[in-house]
Every structure is written in C-alpha cells, then in structure tokens.
Nucleic acid binder design. Structure first.
Lengths: 204, 204
DNA sequence: TAGATTGTTAATCGATTAACAATC
DNA sequence: TAGATTGTTAATCGATTAACAATC
C-alpha cells in the first residue's frame, strides 16, 4: 500500500528562504541580520507565514533585530538535513537522468547519486552498470543505499520498485508517470510534470 | 508582483486518473465502464475524493454503472485542455532542457515546444537559436507563443523573464532555483527539485 | 424491488492568516 | 521609554472526508 505522503508545505518554502539568504550574503558579505518582513517582501510571501516557518526551523530570532543570517542559514540546513549526505541509485540515465546526476542544486541538498543503472548509457559523471540484478543487489546492499530515483520508462518502474525495496530502499523519487505500489514504510515522491502542464493550461 | 498560484489540487489528481484509465483500456480494450470505487482502490485514494473530482470534470457518471470510460477520458482531457496545442519556447537546451523537449508525456498534454534558445546546443529535435534578442522577439511575436520554459542557470532566469513578458508570454514554467519577479497576469509554475529532496530527507 | 453507485450538502480537518502579548 | 519585531494563541479559510438523498 502506498504510504500517504503528508506534504508539509514548510518543505516547499524553506529551500526558497535558504536560497534567498545565501544570495543576499553573496551580494553583501557584511550582512548580519535579516527580518521575516524583509524575506516576506522579497519573496512575495506572507510575513506571518515566514515568521512561523522560521520560528519552527530556527527559533533564534530576536525582537527588533531579526535573525542572525548565518545562524538562520545553518538552522534551515539542519532542519532540511542538507548537510547529511544521502546516497542514491538512479535507474535510467537518459537525458533526464543525466540532468539530475549533474544538477549541482541536488548536491547542495545532500543528495549523492552514486550509481546509475542503464543498459545504454556510459555516463562520465557516475559509475553506471547494466540492468544486472546481481550487481544491483550487491551494490545497494554493500553501500547501504536507501534512496532510489526512477527515470525509466513507466513500463519497468514497478518492477524496479519490487526489486529494490527488499534491498533496503526506503524512499523513491519517481519521475515515471505512473503510481507505484509500495509497502508501508516506504515513501514515494512523485514528480508529476503533466500536472504542471495542466496548471499552466488551465491558466491560459 | 508574483501572481499567487492557486494550486488547485484537482490538477494533481486528474492526470493520474487519466493515465490510469488509458492503461486499463490498453490492457482490456473491451472495457466500457469504470466506477470511482475502482479508480480509488487502484490508486490508493479516497473514494469520495475521486468521485468529487470526476463529478466536476466529467459529470456523466451513472448510478450503479459508473462512468463510460471513453467519455471519462475525453472529459478529463477536455477539462485539462490536453488536446489544445500550446506553443512554448524553451530557454536552455542542456540535459534537462533536451529531456523536456523529448518527453512524450508532455506532448500528450498538449505542450508543443517549438523553439529552443541556447548558445551551445544544436538539438536535432527542435529548431534552436542563439541568445539573439532580435530573433527571439521576432519568433515569439510571429508565432504568438505564450509559454516560456526556463532551464537556464538561475543567474539569467530573471533577465529572460523581463525579455519575454513584454512579448506576450503569459505563463512561465521555471526550473531555475530562483523566485521570479513577474507582473500580475503572468503565472509562474516553479519546479522545485530541492523541495522534493527535502521531503525525502525528512522522511529518512 | 433491493442494492449499488452517483453527486451534493454538512462536518471535519489542516493550513494559513490575524491578533496580540512578550521582548529587545 | 517608544517602537519594532518576534513567537504564539485564536480566528479564518479552504480542502478533504463523511453522511445521505437521488437514481439507475
């Protein structure tokens, strides 16, 4: 049964605050403090919401002064566990797969894609192997990997799930346009591009 | 000011129903009717929610029988406007950009990427041009394009916005990890991959 | 008719926003 | 002290779920 993903929307906003703070510091390295009001105004968000999020993830704000920006960045990173390296194996290293492998942004958030599985690709960025079940099993078990990224055609996505979950995979980032059937205790994060197109269409 | 995107969650679920129905028909072409209960069970969703969504987007369900599956597919496609071709120009045709250009799923939802802008790529899938402002202007205006997809480094994302919005772009699908500043009347759909990583991390 | 299923109205739940006391 | 800003408690809003009448 699919674990129902409680999308806490704070996870949508914290990365945005984080990037913004980093950018502000880059522009002005002498910057020391920032207020929730400034963040809200810069990002077109509600002031109270920003404050509530920061209160939860950081909590070191000081009335009249705001937040120490360095401490704030550190706190958000801790809350999001961006510094904690998370090893992942990616299935399907085509255009989309290689894009993910090379995407710096993901490395900044601690996602460490250590192995690609694809019969047709030789990526020069990561080690890739064929769809060889024994090799896959060995690698995932030995390296103690618990994230799988699926960028394959949808026809084999479920099969991959069924293969890797018994090996200790606990989280699946799914780019295949199909709903995966996984046991309780395993999380699936679906990246649904068709949904985005629908939202855009509905607006036009 | 950024138009606040009212993410109606029905747009997240309808594409899922749609794909599922198509798949069922593929497996069994003689299938005529389907109930909200079956869809809900198959996809691990709430029965009432499915029914409410279908009621809104289709509304041709019949008690005891369910929905004519062909009519249902057609209705959802109409609701999502997947059959209506929507021309788009994509900025940045690297790994991620080409993945989008080649992604069949998007074509099925009516997204027709007709032009790529990238100084370094010659895609064999679509016409690509350099970042030549005059050419870009001419193309967007002439072809009456109103969707722009941004897959560039974040440093130039805002610049692209400022260039294309006066040319009639009304919707921006943004893969750059930055919050874009756009006037009212323009929609931005942010594809925030860092957010997904955060959700996965928080679960592990 | 009886039973299953739809679609809608009412209740619940969760997230966002407003109000305000605490504090620097 | 006065004013600005934080963090929390209460109110509002919207989305999900439950209950139920309508209907095939």
């Amino acid at each position: 049964m699919q674990q129902n993903l409680n999308v806490k929307s704070i996870y949508k906003r914290l990365p945005v605050y984080l990037e913004h703070c980093k950018e502000l510091i880059e522009k002005d390295p002498s910057l020391m403090y920032i207020t929730s009001k400034k963040i809200a105004n810069d990002l077109f968000l509600g002031e109270v919401q920003v404050r509530k999020d920061l209160s939860k993830s950081c909590g070191h704000g000081r009335p009249k002064t705001g937040y120490n920006i360095h401490l704030l960045i550190e706190s958000i990173q801790n809350y999001l566990r961006t510094t904690q390296q998370k090893k992942a194996v990616i299935f399907g290293v085509g255009k989309l797969g290689s894009a993910l492998v090379e995407f710096e942004e993901l490395k900044n958030y601690g996602l460490d894609i250590v192995l690609g599985v694809d019969p047709n690709t030789q990526s020069h960025c990561i080690e890739t192997i064929d769809y060889n079940i024994d090799l896959i099993k060995e690698y995932i078990t030995k390296e103690n990997i618990n994230i799988a990224i699926i960028c394959t055609p949808k026809i084999i996505a479920q099969e991959i799930c069924d293969l890797v979950i018994p090996l200790g995979i606990k989280a699946i980032w799914n780019f295949a346009p199909i709903r995966l059937n996984v046991p309780k205790g395993v999380i699936v994060q679906n990246e649904n591009l068709a949904y985005s197109v629908s939202v855009l269409s509905s607006f036009l």
